[in-house]
Simulated scan of single mutants.
Amino acid sequence: MNYGYENNQYTTSYGAAGGADGGGFVAGEPQSSPAQGRGGYGKDTVRPMTIKQILDAQQPHPDADFKSDGEAFSQVTFVGQIRSISTQPTNITYKIDDGTGLIEAKQWIDVNSADSESSKMDLDNSNKPKLVEDGYCRVWGRLKAFNNKRHVGAHIIRPITDYNEIHYHLLEATAVHLFFSRGPPSNLNGNAQANGHGNAHHGAGGAGLAQSATADAQLSHISPLGRRILATLKNTPQSNEGLHVQMIASHMGVSTNDVYKGAEELVAAGVIFTTVDDHTWAVLDG
């Protein structure tokens, strides 16, 4: 499935250029671990993110790089639903919502550019998918801040026609967040083997202890309500789409507002993720 990563301009920072097989995150061992702060992860490469991650990114002062999970970035890609479109002589502004936040994407118009003329035609050309209000789109661009308000200067905005791309992007953004915050998956296996000293049983036990310790640390700041919701998600029979908010509330005997509140904690902690819509969650297995 090609989700638009064939353009080599949008080479990612995760080890390979994006292609038809995915958006660029490679779950193999990199040349150096980002957690160790060494090179190989340029800030001008494209990072898949949610809008909340973009809005929560740190910038110590106006001229500093934006950082998320301790890694500098400027180029981002995200998906979302277009809430409004405002066409001005110099730019087209799209307000985009992905369920985690709302941000503006501005596409500047160069009247002398054929590419810009083509971008404007995307709104009107009946022979191709359109960028319309309430439709879904993918954005590639650079994060900017002006007057303490953030927006994305968009290089490309295109409509989404395969809705699997929305779920794929959210999973990829989660995987990249875990990659930068916890290191590559190979680290866990390597630590287990090192602790086992050649004993397969001991190594497996070491990995289990490491996973348990990581899980405990991850949930240390989660409220009792959030932990109950997580237990319900783990222990209730369900399809691969997870559980809807109404089902969780029914199983727990609480209000849907309580479920939303606890689920927000778990999503922010990277423990669960939305599936078919913003009201259905599943557990993100480690």
Results as ranks from 00 to 15, higher is better:
residue 131 L to P: 00
residue 131 L to D: 01
residue 132 V to F: 00
residue 132 V to P: 04
residue 132 V to K: 08
residue 132 V to R: 06
residue 133 E to Q: 11
residue 133 E to D: 08
residue 133 E to R: 06
residue 134 D to Q: 13
residue 134 D to M: 10
residue 134 D to W: 06
residue 137 C to G: 05
residue 138 R to S: 09
residue 139 V to D: 00
residue 139 V to Q: 00
residue 140 W to L: 06
residue 141 G to N: 02
residue 142 R to K: 07
residue 144 K to I: 00
residue 144 K to W: 08
residue 145 A to V: 14
residue 146 F to P: 05
residue 146 F to K: 10
residue 146 F to E: 11
residue 147 N to A: 11
residue 147 N to S: 05
residue 148 N to Y: 06
residue 148 N to H: 10
residue 148 N to I: 10
residue 149 K to D: 07
residue 150 R to A: 04
residue 151 H to Q: 13
residue 152 V to T: 02
residue 152 V to E: 01
residue 152 V to W: 02
residue 153 G to I: 13
residue 154 A to M: 00
residue 154 A to V: 00
residue 155 H to S: 09
residue 156 I to H: 02
residue 156 I to Q: 07
residue 156 I to Y: 01
residue 157 I to G: 01
residue 157 I to E: 01
residue 158 R to A: 14
residue 160 I to K: 06
residue 160 I to P: 04
residue 160 I to F: 03
residue 160 I to E: 03
residue 160 I to M: 03
residue 161 T to K: 08
residue 163 Y to W: 06
residue 164 N to I: 04
residue 165 E to R: 12
residue 165 E to V: 12
residue 165 E to S: 13
residue 166 I to F: 04
residue 167 H to G: 15
residue 167 H to E: 09
residue 167 H to A: 15
residue 168 Y to M: 10
residue 168 Y to N: 14
residue 168 Y to F: 15
residue 169 H to V: 08
residue 169 H to I: 04
residue 170 L to T: 14
residue 170 L to N: 14
residue 170 L to I: 15
residue 171 L to K: 11
residue 172 E to M: 03
residue 172 E to F: 10
residue 172 E to I: 07
residue 173 A to Y: 03
residue 173 A to S: 09
residue 174 T to G: 10
residue 174 T to N: 15
residue 176 V to A: 04
residue 176 V to L: 03
residue 177 H to I: 14
residue 177 H to K: 12
residue 178 L to W: 13
residue 178 L to Y: 08
residue 179 F to D: 03
residue 179 F to A: 02
residue 180 F to V: 12
residue 181 S to A: 05
residue 181 S to R: 03
residue 181 S to Q: 06
residue 183 G to H: 05
residue 184 P to M: 06
residue 185 P to Y: 12
residue 186 S to D: 08
residue 189 N to D: 14
residue 190 G to P: 08
residue 190 G to I: 11
